[in-house]
């Protein structure tokens, strides 16, 4: 599964740390999610999407191999 978190962060100019604090996780978790090393849970994915004010499907994209 791919995600557009890095792009969305760049659009509103916030750091990984700020996003992490906003959704209640560590910065390393955000780094791991951006690098596709870790799949967030449904609540976390929804929190991230709500933070950016966009639908979850526009932030997290299901791939053919998933």
């Amino acid at each position: 599964m791919k995600n557009r978190i890095k792009v969305e962060r760049a659009e509103i100019n916030i750091t990984q740390q700020q996003l992490a604090e906003a959704v209640g996780v560590s910065r390393q978790t955000i780094v791991a999610i951006e690098k596709n090393h870790f799949l967030p849970s449904t609540p976390l994915a929804l929190k991230i999407s709500r933070f950016f004010g966009k639908p979850v499907e526009s932030i997290f994209i299901l791939e053919e191999t998933d």
Binding site: G24, V25, S26, Q28, T29, A32, F38, P40, S41, L44
Partner: peptide, 9 residues
């Protein structure tokens, strides 16, 4: 220090 779902995993 920050216990989240990734540390649980």
């Amino acid at each position: 220090r920050i216990e989240d779902e990734m540390t649980s995993a």
